[in-house]
Design a protein around this nucleic acid. Structure first.
Length: 804
DNA sequence: CGTTTCCGGGG
DNA sequence: GTGTACGGAAACG
């Protein structure tokens, strides 16, 4: 096979199927859990591996004398063997021993002797001197095995659990209910019998017993690592319960270093102890759907928020009967209506399971490639977390010395092109974009890290792009909803993640092993060049450019053009680009409001309004403003200016007559400071003032409340509406404040769409009639051209020597 | 008005 | 095993 070597770099080489979990100890023991093909039965293999390290020199091991010997003389008990890798990389000695702790101790003792002071940890020697992977990764890199070969996502035994607690702080609050979904999809709840320590401890023990009975390969939930596991660990420690959740080894959760979580230098000390921890257990993988959601939204940028309910709703996973209870009320409701809380908690695990399946396939597919545990790949950044381990494996497989991290030379990193050509409303809009622009440029112009002498990065990108096309084709050929379709779509998503982060890896300063700012800048320079060529060539063909960003362009076409004409100009321009740079027709829209760079609204020919950019989709926006904006935009993009006026007048009037419920002006906010912290800070903030004004002197950090500005500039707290209870609405909001907000923050987003006199007319105060007769019947939205594409006198696009 | 601080998730 | 990035909104000066 032509690419056998490169396929080994990408997939590893050991064909062992069905691995669902790997646990290794520093002493050289590895436990491998596999599901057998066919039966799906679980087996555990106990194997030995030789722990290894990469060193820049052997100077810290010379004190071993005869106990240090070359690898080719073969391993022997209590000996350290060494092997020199070939080529110029700094990390050039692989040293191995039967026991990794003995190996590390030998290096540390040698370093201490040489440096004249004790050295406690290999990391103290620096990344330029030593590379030491966690034991599982040492095992996977050396063996060429990976997770999940010949296994489908649905072959995994997955369970979900979700804690219901009396509050957010495990120091004071209790777990009173746990919803469970087993591997066959059956849900139920476990509950504490009473509110004593003993009752809670008994609940935790029953949870542990259920997990062991279900015996899942994977445990999933939304914010599992940020909430459920740390909360559970804390309560178990307080109550003296042992969490024997693993499949081997000593019982209890183990901590691993956090990948995501606490931001240092911000927030109070100890305040995010919950977020810092990542727990792990032998034989099972903890998967947090919040990680999958973030990874997904990073590329799509279309989610309204990252909370479970919002995401499930958005992705169509919520059932119409989905039970909702505001977090702060769950425990209270449990007292009066426990059945409601049970339904709510079961709905939570059901949605978490659905989310995990819908978005979790990418991490699953990554685990078939990269030599890391599945749970680490699920929360890893793609550059250091996925690409780097693959490159390390490739270099070791080839016996090649590995470069160490090197600081940049101070060259700044230059970015992508962003052009706003016109603002306002345009009709007949087309979006064209280049599929995977940066990877295509890297491939087309062979731009890779200078120190990657094997060319492994470009080889990986080449193979991934080719194999991704094949996976997409297989997905298309498979019946919709089939495991075959799912697997190949997930594979394609995983490959896209890796391919698209190759560029990020290059540009990551001194953070990645093969970082190369010059190469990264060459990629962006080519990208800007390509985008400019696309814009110029489109403009020459008679379209009006609207916005171009990195790899795509929106433009509007003359009246009378049909879809065939639109596609024709795109393919004409596509013909002018280098072979691996593929410009594609990405969509067509009836109209677009171009507001600011990366902020626009699109009206499809049929279908719902699409809002992009934070100006149009702020999660904290008050509902009345959001509703107004959607109504106004729909009218605006249909050319109906009187309709925009109507929406505005209605909203202002409803505010002033207080026919809008207080709920629609209230903001849903989270209290992140304790009363003590707030009172100690000088800064006054509306939500806390509202708490204090309502007489509440105690609250927990993390509590969510609805606040609004009441008459007289007062901060006020809106009591959470009980189901079916609308009588308690105070309706004392400051109508003029919200009328001003409607004009200044919401209507303002339409400012580019109208001539100034029309804008003034449309958003004139309805109670202060203007002197001029309304003339909106003839008003039209406007488009303002800000700049013309560079046509003359510019370099004629890409330099000729780059074309075949 | 420009600058600084805070936010994202879970009960 | 270390990092989020980023852009908006509200409060401050």
């Amino acid at each position: 096979m032509a690419h056998a070597r490169e396929d080994e770099w990408l997939w590893g080489w050991d064909p062992t199927p069905g691995i669902v979990s790997v646990w290794a100890e520093p002493d050289g023991r590895a436990f491998v859990w596999r599901r057998l093909p066919g039966s799906g039965a679980l087996v555990r293999e106990d194997v030995r591996f030789r722990p290894w390290l990469l060193l820049a020199s052997l100077e810290n091991l010379t004190h071993l004398g005869a106990r240090l010997r070359p690898e080719h003389e073969g391993p022997a008990p209590h000996r350290v063997t060494w092997q020199e890798l070939e080529g110029p990389g700094a990390l050039r000695y692989v040293v191995r021993a039967d026991d990794g702790r003995m190996l590390a101790t030998a290096v540390l003792q040698g370093a201490a002797r040489r440096l004249g002071h004790p050295v406690g940890n290999l990391r103290e020697l620096g990344a330029h001197a030593v590379l030491s992977l966690p034991p599982e990764e040492q095992y996977l890199v050396a063996s060429g095995r990976t997770y999940f070969r010949d296994l489908g996502f649905d072959d995994l035994r997955r369970m979900q659990f979700d804690l219901e607690t009396t509050g957010l702080e495990p120091q004071h609050d209790r777990i009173f209910l746990v919803a469970i979904r087993d591997a066959d999809g059956k849900t139920d709840t476990l509950e504490a019998h009473g509110d004593s320590d003993a009752a809670e401890a008994d609940l935790l023990q029953r949870l542990v017993a259920r997990v062991r009975a279900i015996d899942p390969d994977v445990i999933e939930n939304h914010n599992l690592h940020g909430f459920d596991l740390p909360f559970l660990a804390h309560r178990a420690r307080l109550l003296g319960v042992t969490l024997a959740l693993g499949r081997a080894g000593t019982p209890g959760l183990r901590q691993r270093p956090a990948a995501r979580g606490a931001a240092p230098g911000r927030g109070g000390p100890g305040h995010d102890a919950m977020r810092r921890a990542r727990y792990t257990v032998p034989g099972r993988e903890f998967i947090d759907t919040l990680d999958a959601v973030r990874r997904h939204d990073f590329s799509t940028r279309e989610l309204p928020g990252h909370g479970l309910k919002a995401v499930a709703q958005h992705l169509g996973l919520s059932s119409p009967e989905r039970e909702h209870i505001p977090g702060a009320q769950v425990y209270e409701v449990f007292g009066s209506n426990p059945e409601r809380v049970r339904r709510y908690a079961r709905d939570d695990v059901t949605e978490a399971a659905g989310l995990a399946r819908m978005l979790g396939g990418a991490a699953f597919a990554l685990a078939r490639m990269a030599p890391r545990r599945y749970e680490r790949l699920a929360d890893a950044g793609p550059a250091t977390g996925v690409i780097d381990p693959m490159l390390v494996r490739a270099y070791l497989r080839e016996g090649a010395a590995l470069p160490a991290h090197e600081p940049g030379d101070g060259t700044p990193h230059s970015g992508a092109a962003l052009h706003l050509f016109a603002t306002g409303v345009a009709r007949h809009v087309v979006k064209a974009d280049v599929a995977s622009l940066y990877p295509s440029l890297m491939r087309e112009y062979r731009i890779g890290p200078k120190r990657d002498r094997l060319g492994a990065m470009l080889a990986l990108v080449d193979r991934l792009v080719e194999q991704r096309l094949a996976a997409k084709a297989r997905a298309r050929a498979a019946p919709s909803g089939s495991p075959e379709r799912y697997t190949n779509e997930a594979l394609s998503a995983a490959m896209k993640i890796v391919v698209n982060s190759a560029y990020g890896y290059l540009g990551a300063g001194g953070l990645t092993r093969f970082a190369d700012v010059h190469a990264a800048n060459e990629v962006t320079r080519r990208g800007r060049e390509v985008l400019r060529l696309i814009c110029n060539e489109l403009a020459r063909r008679g379209v009006t450019l609207l916005e171009a960003d990195t790899d795509g362009v929106y433009f509007s076409v003359p009246d009378g053009w049909g879809e065939a004409d639109e596609r024709r100009v795109v393919s004409e321009v596509a013909e002018l680009l280098p072979p691996k740079v593929r410009l594609e027709f990405d969509g067509r829209y009836a109209a677009m409001l171009s507001h600011e760079p990366k902020n626009y609204a699109l009206q499809p020919y049929d279908g719902a309004l699409i809002l992009r950019g934070v100006a149009f989709r702020s999660s904290r926006a008050e509902p009345f403003g959001e509703d107004f904006l959607r109504r106004a935009l729909r009218c605006l993009l249909a050319g109906d200016i009187p309709g925009v006026r109507g929406a505005y007048v209605e909203t202002v009037t409803a505010l002033r007559r207080r026919t809008l419920p207080t709920l629609s002006v209230a903001a849903h906010v989270r209290l992140t400071k304790t009363p003590e912290q707030y009172l100690a800070a000088r800064r006054r903030e509306l939500p806390y003032e509202a708490m204090l004004a309502s007489g509440q002197k105690h609250w927990a950090s993390g509590e969510q409340v609805r606040v609004y500005r009441a008459v007289g500039g007062r901060a006020a707290l809106l009591p959470e509406p009980e189901a079916g209870d609308n009588g308690g609405d105070p309706r004392d909001y400051d109508a003029e404040f919200y009328a001003r907000q409607l004009r200044e923050t919401f209507a303002a987003r339409l400012v580019r769409a109208l001539a100034p006199e029309d804008f003034a007319e449309v958003f004139a105060d309805p109670e202060q009639p203007s002197l001029f007769a309304p003339s909106l019947a003839n008003a039209r939205p406007i488009l303002t051209v800000l700049r013309e594409p560079e046509t003359e006198g510019e370099p004629p696009g890409l330099s000729a020597d780059n074309f075949p």
